[in-house]
Design a protein around this nucleic acid. Structure first.
Lengths: 337, 337
DNA sequence: GCGCATCACTGAACCGGGTAAGTTCTGGGA
DNA sequence: TCCCAGAACTTACCCGGTTCAGTGATGCGC
């Protein structure tokens, strides 16, 4: 089956290629009558512009790139990325931008992918996640002048757009809630510690605990995986002055922590209260369902995509705060016995 | 920063564009010495061929497409797709093929996306999942002559390559194992019932139960979500002759089923044994860890990508059985009390 | 009735690689 | 010495859109 081109349309409409191009793109230069005729022919023969030809002349690939830099094992189970991806799609799909995905192992490899994409003109911009302090990807993107949007922060991203959520406010709310329930010994199991948002959360956690006079507050670093979540939880629970509440930096570690508590014969929430960061169906799936810090990840992704499209179109972009994180109380939190 | 082109290389090497193209593609027509010189210049200035230009002349986009047709909520939590994606990437990345993703709501919309991709020449082939009986996507792909590989089955896909796993054998093994433990009342909570592999599993489940003389065997249809998993489990457990073992068609429903059992005060595996289809970190995360039907999803994806690349290159493709599914016993199965 | 602006369109160049066809040069055999 | 084969290139066109300069035709004001 032969793919129709604008030349086919031009022939049938009895006009030149140029006129067809103007008509299809809503440019001035053709009469309304001709435009209608051309559009109806295009519709009739099922015309879609060849993306390569368009990219070659117009310098717009109509695609954006996303790299996933997490071990495959974790990628699968963490709802975060898929939520983000659905959000992107909502905005991208509406403007028929494609999303190109690449799984990488390290930030260095990620930079290589950016360079390759840029050289190949394969994408018009990238979405950057898992931002670190003094992230080595930022200067490369600036040097390449590759439009980008950073998810996470707030941090220093120079001229690059940024979407972030108020992690400090959220963790403060969670700690205050636990204290209000009567907890005094609160611990936290954190995600990968060189990520910027982990550092922001840790700082905020320490600040609020200090201000409330909680002496036993401490953060055990982990890496978002269930294994590390279990290990950190065991370390916390076998100690003499074990915490009565634990806040986990993601849902996977929280579920793992719940399993450890059950395995040790502790009742949740009687002996231990659990709060998960990032609500997902996983949190309501287990028993008891987990109290969580919820945010609309999909909306977060949509907002990021929109910001990136703005950057690609050369419009002004900024430093945007995403929708609020709010606490969703469920069965895993209660006053300590 | 200007992107280097073959014209830049040609100028620096003192040869024509054509010679550079031959050299870079390993074609005959240039001397070994010139080829080396050209390659080293390309390396030095960080040349990457413009994918649009290449696609336009060579008619190869060096990208493959994948559509995800599941509600966003489920997409996030099911490890299956992300596992598959990592698998694809392993093969695609090695040949610098890109993976283009699109989230869709219905098979009809999926067909629209295929047509658009085809018209835009954006991709060289597609990976088709969630295959149904008399799937409406198959004839469209054949008509467009769009290279494709179908994941799932076995079923009728005509000339299109297919990767499938022995679901019938796996469910037979699971039932035999439960019977060997002493279970007689075994139920199953299935996935979306018009999917081909669900039907294959249901048929095999009925066959093996009949051959073993299990009268109480029954399948409750669900849809892979935690909500439906819970609902089906409740229906099964409140009945008079409640099953002593349940097999779930995915891990998410199995975890939800475990939570329902705990909520109803039933002990797992004392009062109820649970088997999950598709092992994932989620299964080892909960307490007790779930006995699962394991398969290497990532390898499954890699195999599919390889088969698709073969189809794109016009090589013969066939009907491939993926690695075996095997039973991984964990804490959620035991003899009934 | 003339000049000029505007509209509607055409023709051709262009983007950056791929490749068929043509050209030049070298060396070996008769 | 001449001829021819083959290597090592160059030239030029192709892919399918976009865009800019140019061309008639029309309308409008004076």
């Amino acid at each position: 089956m032969k793919r129709p081109t604008i030349a086919d349309i031009a022939r049938r409409a009895g006009v030149s290629k140029g006129a067809v191009s103007y008509a299809l793109n809503g440019q001035p230069g053709v009469s309304e009558a001709t435009r209608k005729r051309i559009l109806s022919i295009a519709e009739e023969i099922g015309f879609n512009a060849n993306s390569a030809a368009r990219a070659l002349s117009g310098a717009r690939a109509r695609a954006v790139g996303l790299t996933l830099c997490r071990p495959a094992k974790l990628l699968g189970i963490e709802p975060w990325f898929m939520g983000l991806i659905s959000g992107f799609e909502a905005e991208l799909g509406a403007r028929s931008y494609a999303l190109t995905l690449q799984v990488v192992a390290t930030p260095e490899e990620e930079i290589e992918v950016y360079r390759r994409w840029w050289g190949e003109r394969r994408i018009d911009g990238v979405i950057v996640t898992d931002i670190r302090k003094d992230d080595i990807r930022i200067p490369v993107l600036q040097q390449l002048q590759l439009p980008a949007v950073v998810i996470g922060g707030p941090g220093e991203t120079g001229s690059i757009a940024q979407i972030w959520s108020d992690d400090a406010g959220a963790i403060t709310e969670a700690v205050r809630y636990l204290v209000a329930l009567g907890h005094h010994r609160i611990a936290r199991v954190s995600g990968v510690s060189d990520l910027l948002h982990t550092q922001n959360r840790t700082k905020a956690f320490e600040t609020v605990c200090a201000s409330l006079g909680l002496d036993h507050a401490r953060t055990i670093p982990a890496d978002y995986t269930g294994e590390e979540g279990s290990r950190a939880t065991r370390r916390l629970l076998i100690g003499g002055d074990r915490p009565t509440a634990i806040i986990y930096d993601n849902d996977v570690m929280a579920v793992a922590g719940l399993a450890v508590a059950q395995e040790m014969g502790l009742s949740v929430p009687g002996d231990l209260s659990i709060v998960a960061w990032d609500d997902s169906p996983l949190c309501s799936l287990v028993h008891p369902p987990l109290t969580a810090l919820s945010r609309d990840i999909s909306a977060y992704g949509a907002q990021a995509a929109l910001e990136l499209l703005n950057a690609i179109d050369g419009r002004k972009v900024g430093n945007v705060e995403a929708g609020r994180v709010h606490l969703t109380p469920r069965g895993s939190t209660a006053p300590p016995r």
